[in-house]
Design a binder for these strands. Structure first.
Lengths: 207, 207, 207, 207
DNA sequence: AATGAATGAGCATTCATTCAT
DNA sequence: TATGAATGAATGCTCATTCAT
């Protein structure tokens, strides 16, 4: 109980990297990599610049750590997709809703997307790694789900089955309206999700 | 003949702003706003830093000029969409293909999207302006096209008609695979486009 | 008559240097030498930078020309002092009043003083020249006037006669209150002048 | 002993602001505000530009600190004037001599006067503050001294009593001969002071 | 572990000056 | 004569990084 008030030095030390990553996420999200100052990251958690360098050798390393950290929501998607049950239609609907859950509920997931797009030329390895570990496996599983739906006679055997990206694209689209306009130009998100599911289900439906 | 080698002062001057904007586009696309050096922009066209400031008061102004300039492909979409002919199905197909033409053929359009996403927090006015002048009018025309298709009995009257963004989202998705991976992870783009059109047409079809 | 509306080119040319000097005076007075931009000087008379350089080789040369120009009020003091008439008391009073006339009525004289003090380390030759041509001759004539007054029995033969600077110092003091505070802290100038004359006359009076 | 060669970090830090102010004083005095380079200030104490900015946010802030610092000689005048003793004639003489002590002995006081005059348009607040804190209080005390002398029958009740500025003006005049000519045109300063006191005492004397 | 003074390379921006027209 | 595009050397200020404490 007292641990909230006074941590031992060892506890402090164990917490620091996470604190720094959290603070860095906020600053990178606000300013982008280049325009973020290490000092501002430090100030957010009440330490000084030097402390950041105790845990991370360079600003780039810290950025990479932030990206790995905020990839977590995507990692969680994989077992979820593997575990969905019901008809294939139901399963696909759940997967689509999962995207919105991750992207709209968890700001970290949204900003990760933005990091990827913004900093792609500076961090190509990071982009590839993120694709290898998260996006590609997710796409594979969705495609496999569609293929099974086709085999089960629920979906028609069209070219759409080859591209999970198409099925999920509208979720990304909504992500950008948030990222671009913050809340300046609101969208009826519930309706948007239903429309998305509606058109994809109709588009995929057999006969 | 010699005009290629030596332009008059007046000719040079008339060309300069465009030269600078072109050079700036390349640098901003490569590095983002914050990490781009005005000196590098100048060097690209063989002038010195000072020359850039003869034409643009600040780096921010120059960025805004670049954005306006590369919005051109989007401006051209509007009259095109208004002029498409054929059944509403045909019209919508043409519009979807138009997105790919603009986004995949013209690198500037792709990078504009990236600028918007990367620099949104620093240039909210630019983002809004781009939306007001280009994206919103395009969306409006697409929605109107769908509505007419519904009225004509070609499309069913579902929720999808409310969101042009959903119809076009996969084109944006493909844009990002290019932007993110450059050409490291190629996609069968022709097939992707056909799949996109296929699923949307089936999703919208009446009956 | 028409000369005000349309000057011949030759007339224009003859006027330009004076126009430039006038404009330069205003800018140097406002900003000091270092912080004045040649472009602003040019803009004041509706020409461009290049034109200034047609007439003056460098900004320093132009500054020197301005200083020479605004020394005129001081040059005019010499014949005036030589021509004053009346008792020596009356003459000295007139000379003191002359200082106020020059320094308080003519803003150019005030600013010249300020130029001298501000830019002395950068333009030592200018300072010396101004002293040789104007200040020293004026001081010499005032001293001579006092000496004559002593010889005539109007003034006592005290040490004060050796320093014209002491007699005139309050006029300089008032100049600075104007220069420093512009009009933020007004002074009763008429009273100040009378007090100045009163104390000097009493201080010099024989017996 | 070794302390002269190697100070601890803490000692260094405590000294830095003063070192920077001292160095800045020299540079500002030599070149004026606009023409002084922060880099030269830093070089004077063997540090780099960046170090100056650790302690002062802008060049303007540093200038203000310098001005506050060199106002010290004027601050010291106030208690001195309040403490002078003797007849009012004696007191006033001491006060006049005090001006020369401050202005001629302490170069900083001279340069402060020059700063005020040179940079008045750029730093009006600084000028006002210096007047409020130092010049106006000094003038008030001198006026009060004269008024008491009048009441005591030592000074006549003339208009001169209204302006302490007149009484002290010659000290300022001498200051300028130093500031303008450095030592190129020396003045017999001892004689000048005596002449100043002589004429003021005679000018003020009752009868 | 944490600090923060110091660095030094960097960068946006300015401006006196030049010169082809 | 006048222009104004172009230059290039500055210069104020920033910030990632280092390191002695």
């Amino acid at each position: 109980m007292r641990c909230k008030l006074k941590l031992t030095r060892a506890e402090q030390k164990a917490l620091r990297p996470q604190q720094i990553i959290d603070a860095a996420f906020e600053e990178f999200a606000r300013n982008g990599f280049a325009a973020t100052r290490v000092e501002d990251i430090a100030a957010r958690i009440g330490v000084t610049k030097g402390t950041v360098y105790v845990y991370f050798a360079t600003k780039e390393d810290l950025f990479a750590a932030v990206v790995m950290q905020v990839s977590q929501p995507f990692a969680e998607m994989i077992p979820y997709i593997e575990a969905v049950e019901g008809t294939y239609q139901e399963r696909l609907k759940k997967v689509i809703r999962l995207f919105y859950d991750k992207l709209m509920v968890d700001r970290r997931a949204r900003e990760l997307i933005r990091f990827m797009i913004s900093e792609a030329p500076r961090f190509p390895d990071l982009v590839d790694r993120h694709d290898d570990e998260f996006m590609a496996p997710i796409a594979t599983r969705i495609k496999s789900l569609i293929d099974q739906g086709v085999a089960a006679g629920e979906f028609r055997d069209g070219p759409a089955s080859w591209f999970a990206e198409i099925i999920c694209a509208p979720a990304l689209m909504m992500t950008f309206t948030r990222v671009l306009f913050d809340n300046r130009r609101p969208l009826d998100e519930a309706k948007f999700v239903e429309a998305h599911i509606d058109i994809m289900m109709n588009g995929l439906a057999a006969n």
